[in-house]
């Protein structure tokens, strides 16, 4: 098979398009590059969905943690403690076991006037179940980052908003929220990288790879197991991950510049990238 044919056969293998059987022997470099790259689709999918949804939920968690009423504050604090204080690995296992126990056929929810059936069978699949765990996890971590930023919004900004007669929602939307994001952005960039690394855990923790449709690490591990040679597939995986991380840094850098564009040049904060690894 030429390399072009390999790409046609396996380029979209991880989402079930193309050749069904994985290569069994005589792996070429092209095979490994194509399949591991195909698995990367899943990592990007997990990372993207959970970042986008987690971003909005985290704003809510940060506000709840900052609330005066203990009935709102305490649950938010507990949520953040549970998800930041325990390994993501255990969270995946726990969520999977929980989803498996749910009835297969779906749960009937009686809303009084009508009855709907909640589909539960998709929850045991990685594309939904793992995404839910990742969303909750990133919400907790990002919520803590946003909370810290919310606490350090300068008092002068709030007073200026009051002087202009801004209150409630308009004040939050136009003054507090943008400042909070600006302050939190460098830490949030790290969180995004960190979350993207965490997507590699999905298929190693309970969630099975259905019909061998796995993520990049799943295929890298497949090759390492078959060839007993870790020195080719894992560096390929590392290469892909570094590419995506560079992409994230670029994208977040553009947003960072936009958030800081009203500040004088020397006060603009440059992004300092110090990714952590494990959660």
């Amino acid at each position: 098979m030429t390399c072009l044919e390999t790409i046609q056969a396996y380029g979209l293998r991880s989402i079930g398009i193309g050749e069904r059987l994985l290569p069994k022997s005589d792996f070429t470099l092209c095979d490994q590059f194509t399949l591991i790259g195909s698995g990367l689709i899943w990592n990007v999918y997990f990372g993207f969905i959970s970042l986008v949804i987690g971003f909005f939920l985290a704003t809510g968690v940060a506000l709840a943690k900052n609330a005066d009423s203990p009935f709102i504050r305490k649950p938010a604090e507990l949520f953040v403690f549970v998800f930041r204080g325990s390994p993501l690995f255990i969270q995946f296992f726990l969520a999977y076991e929980l989803f498996v126990l749910l009835p297969k056929v779906g749960i009937d929810i009686n809303l009084g006037f009508t009855e709907i059936t909640a589909e539960t069978r998709w929850l045991t699949r990685a594309w939904l179940g793992a995404v839910i765990v990742l969303i909750l996890n990133t919400t907790a971590y990002t919520g803590e980052i946003f909370y810290g930023a919310l606490r350090s919004v300068p008092m002068g900004d709030i007073e200026a908003a009051d002087a202009y007669g801004l209150t409630g929602w308009p004040r939050f939307k136009r003054i507090v929220w943008p400042t909070m994001l600006r302050l939190a952005w460098p830490a949030y960039t790290n969180e995004a990288i960190f979350l993207f690394h965490a997507t590699a855990l999905v298929y190693f923790s309970g969630f099975p790879a259905w019909r061998q449709k796995g993520d990049a690490l799943y295929y890298a591990n497949y090759f390492a197991d078959k060839t007993f040679n870790p020195f080719i597939p894992y560096p390929i995986l590392a290469f892909y991950f570094i590419l995506v991380v560079l992409g994230i840094i670029g994208l977040f850098g553009v947003i960072n510049r936009r958030l800081n564009r009203h500040l004088p040049q020397e006060r603009q904060k440059k992004l300092k990238i110090r990714p952590q690894i494990i959660r």
Binding site: H197, A198, A224, F228, P230, F241, I273, R274, I277, I278
Partner: peptide
């Protein structure tokens, strides 16, 4: 810095 920890763990042991 750039690589997921879990890939390290799988790589280094072998």
């Amino acid at each position: 810095r750039g690589i997921p920890d879990i890939a390290f763990f799988l790589f280094f042991v072998i």
